[in-house]
Design a binder for these strands. Structure first.
Lengths: 348, 348
DNA sequence: TTGTAAGCGTTATCAG
DNA sequence: CTGATAACGCTTACAA
């Protein structure tokens, strides 16, 4: 059917192995035949068959991507397209392809991963999320299969290569940013406490309060099951307190959108009545009303470093496990200002 | 290294070919040996090697996904995660895997596709976008390689299997919806006129106006290069007209977010001063302020049907080209109401 | 520097 | 119904 290495060999008057060497850009081959072969490949429009190559070389030049189960609303988070871009760029640079594995349930996801790995479809795997007590991680470790996690592992942190932000520091700085504005009653709204990001960000938030000598009120920290309905009640509760916060740290831009809505319904305006700083700095942050002051966590870079490093792990066997910390920056926009004294007293 | 078909054969006391038949669930094989072999596979923890299988069978059970070049802002549109979910589900049902191809420029994307196809990495391809004069389509057609397009092709519409909405009807209905509220001055904001979606939606918008006997004003139709800065100027211009529209048809929820912002800056409120109906009904539409009345185009289904149909094309050679139209529905929320008579006069 | 030949793990074609 | 055996297209010792 298609043109194979043999056809090229025949046309160039060399052995198939020579052609193979040219493809691999082997050093020990004369410039002359190299050119001759290349010309023949050109002429015939030759493209190597990956399946054959993979089979022979026992590797695929493909990275597997494990997404959260698709029923997860988090899937809709603009975080994913961006991290994908980063991964994709890192992979492309080294000529790796990307294979996605998804599933409707956690079990389906695990099965898909097993197929990928055992079927030798991929050389390594990137996990785009991390659940508590994750089966996939357990499996991958047990198989000693190369993988990197984007985010922070729950367990065996020293044994799992991962790329993450310093989320506690980021949250600490975000909170301090509000404190510098003079806020003392600062609330925290985050996602499921089962997510490490949430845990880290709450920690940082509390550290900042503590350092500043502010009291940490338990009723100031709430967890919504990610936006939508969830947000409504939570924010309402928070604002109905006798001493409602004058500023909010919200763990995710997308979530902030929901918070903004509820606030609007309550007739509370941002930043006049309440300041908000949030996280991730996705395109949305810029488009929100008001534009959000947000901690840019460099999503693209998270993905880029993940694939970059996975590839070294794959290519140099026995790479040490690493922890890569991506930097963050606070992007100032219009959602923060000084506390409103009037509003602060209003309910005393 | 790993356990192969031979090991299974040895343990089960049959020939490798028999094992292969069991895997393929061949009908002509005794229930007895089938069980025997299955037990052996179980016992050894056997998993077929896809590379070997692909090589021998000349097919991969993998579908290729072609995304727009990643520098494209459109990449950030929440449209993608959703359509991916649909594609993924259709693929999973038939045990197909998904391989992504991306690139920073159009050329890189084309190269990636060529690699996929020539390298026999995939059995078919799904295009998640369609550019005018697209190289990828040209290439795929020329190779007679199975592919389906999500959206509407620019050319050779009868020869390209695609799944799309009836965007002109959808836009017509959306516009009529506004007309029914009593609006007569209706503007249209859409993306690049190089995109078929935009073209179709403008067409539908104009049809509705015409049918209703309303004049089609040229200065009422504007195209922004997708949100952000673009939106600003355009919306301002529109609202600065002597007779500014009292309602807007906006071609994309994400874009509407930008429009909403500019409107807010201008002190124009939705829907009191101006009504807006938009398209896609992504999660964002629900979260916007006010919640957006939006045409639900069934994004998931677009993806689902795309992979479903691509798989039949791949498996039954010579399937006829099809055009699949996915239904749409207007989801009413709070961004539309009757025209505000006061505002209408204000500038006369 | 280049050629020969033995795999890589399956599937597919024939026989039996 | 099952077993040999030849592909599939490429890589990689081992020779030359």
């Amino acid at each position: 059917m298609a043109v194979t290495i043999k056809d090229v060999a025949a046309l160039a008057n060399v052995a198939p192995s020579t052609v193979s060497r040219v493809i691999a850009d082997s050093p020990r081959i004369s410039e002359e035949t190299k050119q001759k072969v290349k010309k023949a490949m050109e002429q015939l429009g030759y493209h190597p068959n990956f399946n054959a190559r993979n089979l022979a070389s026992q590797s695929t030049k493909v990275l597997g991507l494990v997404m959260p189960s698709s029923k997860d609303v988090g899937f809709q988070n603009p975080f994913f397209p961006t991290v994908l871009q980063g991964i994709s760029e890192g992979a492309q640079e080294k000529n790796y392809a990307l294979q996605m594995s998804t599933g409707k349930s956690e079990k389906e996801v695990l099965d898909a991963v097993i197929q990928m790995v055992q079927g030798k479809r991929v050389d390594g795997v990137i996990l785009l999320y991390s659940n508590v007590d994750d089966q996939v991680i357990t499996y991958l470790k047990e198989q000693r299969f190369p993988f990197v996690l984007i985010g922070k592992p729950y367990i065996d942190i020293e044994e799992i290569t991962h790329v993450d932000n310093d989320n506690v520091r980021a949250a600490k700085e975000a909170t301090e940013y509000l404190i510098r504005y003079g806020h003392e009653k600062i609330g925290f709204i985050g996602g499921s406490p089962e997510l490490m990001v949430t845990v880290d960000r709450v920690t940082g938030y509390k550290q900042a309060l503590q350092n500043a000598g502010l009291t940490i009120r338990k009723d100031y920290t709430i967890h919504e099951e990610f936006l939508r309905e969830g947000g409504q009640g939570a924010v309402r509760e928070l604002m109905a307190l006798e001493q409602p916060p004058t500023a909010l740290v919200v763990a995710d831009d997308f979530m902030t959108l929901g918070v903004l809505n509820t606030l609007d319904e309550l007739g509370i305006s941002v930043p006049e009545d309440i300041s908000i700083i949030s996280f991730n700095n996705v395109l949305l942050a810029e488009l929100a009303r008001p534009p959000l002051t947000s901690v840019d966590i460099n999503i693209f870079e998270l993905g880029y470093q993940a694939s970059k490093n996975l590839i070294v792990m794959v290519e140099n066997n026995n790479e040490p496990t690493k922890r890569l910390i991506i930097s963050h920056t606070i992007i100032e926009r219009l959602s923060c200002t000084k506390p409103n004294p009037v509003r602060g007293l209003e309910r005393n």
